Simulated scan of single mutants.
Amino acid sequence: MRTIKLTKVSRKHIEILQEEIYNYAQGFKEHLKRPENHSVYLYSIAQADIASNLWYLLRKKIESDKNVQSFSLPASEAIVLLNACANASLLSADKYVANVTEIYKNEIDQQLKSIIIPII
């Protein structure tokens, strides 16, 4: 499976992305407390798990000595990050956060659209 590559991401942007992943995961944790149906429950578990893994990956990037980093994400993590960025760009009261998340939303969206995933 192909990956999504994010290049030259500043530490400040990684911190913003990590915060938005956290906010995104919190919404799914609410679904787990009161599941509407089995499908929503399973989807929420998957999304919260992927978001948690992504949060830890971003944490490692923040803690490294580099101020600007490049990294690759598998499609599943890229989709979760895309959704978190889309939510933040629409809902954030902070214009800077909205602009940063819009940048990565567009970048990930463009790369995902160019992937051809083979059907097994």
Rank of each mutant, 00 (worst) to 15 (best):
6 L>A: 03
6 L>Y: 02
8 K>D: 14
10 S>D: 08
10 S>G: 07
14 I>W: 00
15 E>L: 01
17 L>H: 04
18 Q>S: 10
19 E>K: 15
19 E>Q: 15
20 E>K: 10
20 E>G: 04
21 I>M: 06
26 Q>M: 01
27 G>S: 08
29 K>Q: 14
29 K>W: 13
32 L>T: 07
33 K>A: 09
34 R>H: 08
38 H>W: 08
39 S>C: 01
39 S>K: 07
41 Y>G: 07
41 Y>F: 14
42 L>A: 13
44 S>C: 06
47 Q>G: 05
47 Q>L: 11
48 A>N: 10
52 S>F: 11
53 N>K: 15
54 L>Y: 08
54 L>N: 04
56 Y>Q: 02
57 L>A: 11
59 R>A: 10
63 E>M: 07
64 S>W: 07
69 Q>I: 07
70 S>H: 04
70 S>M: 04
71 F>C: 05
71 F>V: 02
73 L>K: 04
74 P>L: 06
74 P>N: 12
75 A>G: 09
78 A>K: 06
79 I>W: 05
81 L>S: 07
81 L>R: 05
83 N>Y: 15
86 A>L: 15
86 A>I: 14
87 N>P: 05
90 L>M: 03
90 L>E: 05
91 L>I: 09
91 L>T: 12
91 L>K: 13
92 S>M: 12
94 D>A: 09
94 D>V: 08
95 K>Q: 14
96 Y>K: 13
97 V>A: 05
98 A>M: 09
98 A>Q: 12
102 E>T: 15
102 E>K: 14
105 K>H: 15
106 N>G: 13
111 Q>Y: 04
111 Q>I: 07
113 K>E: 03
113 K>G: 00
113 K>W: 00
113 K>H: 03
114 S>L: 07
115 I>N: 02
118 P>I: 01
